[in-house]
């Protein structure tokens, strides 16, 4: 930012940057070991999803090999990916449009 910019200008610049930054997806990948009920439980714990939504995402992981479980800004994507990995779900973060989905 150039010297002498006002607070308002700084804020506008930050908001614009946030709005134009490409969103990121948190992706859970299938593994042959984890219980389906455990995956549902973790998705509910981490995101607060309903049982129906968590189950739908889990089935997508199971049937398609992966599922986008959340999309948004990078910092929150990192936090969510960390939480999912702490429960040992295979998780990656991708720029929207970077993967095959």
């Amino acid at each position: 930012m150039f010297r002498g910019a006002t607070q308002e200008e700084t804020r506008t610049e930050q908001v614009t940057r946030t709005k134009t930054a490409p969103p990121w997806s948190v992706i859970v990948h299938d593994d042959p070991i984890s219980l389906m009920s455990y995956v549902v439980d973790v998705l509910q714990k981490v995101f607060g999803y309903s049982t129906a939504k968590a189950r739908k995402l889990m089935l997508e992981v199971h049937n398609k090999g992966r599922s986008i479980v959340w999309t948004g800004d990078r910092e929150r994507a990192e936090i969510f990916a960390g939480k999912l990995q702490s429960f040992h779900l295979r998780t990656t973060i991708e720029r929207v449009g970077a993967g095959r989905d």
């Binding site: 990192e78 990916a81 960390g82 990995q85 702490s86 040992h88 295979r90 998780t91 990656t92 973060i93 991708e94 720029r95 970077a98 993967g99």
Partner: peptide, 27 residues
């Protein structure tokens, strides 16, 4: 157990190694 989450963004892998993985290993 804790593969780098930024598989497709190599420029961010170091960030993950530095900030996220140590916390995960500690936990």
């Amino acid at each position: 157990l804790f593969p780098n989450a930024f598989q497709q963004a190599p420029e961010l892998r170091e960030d993950w190694e530095k900030y996220a993985r140590p916390d995960l290993l500690h936990l």
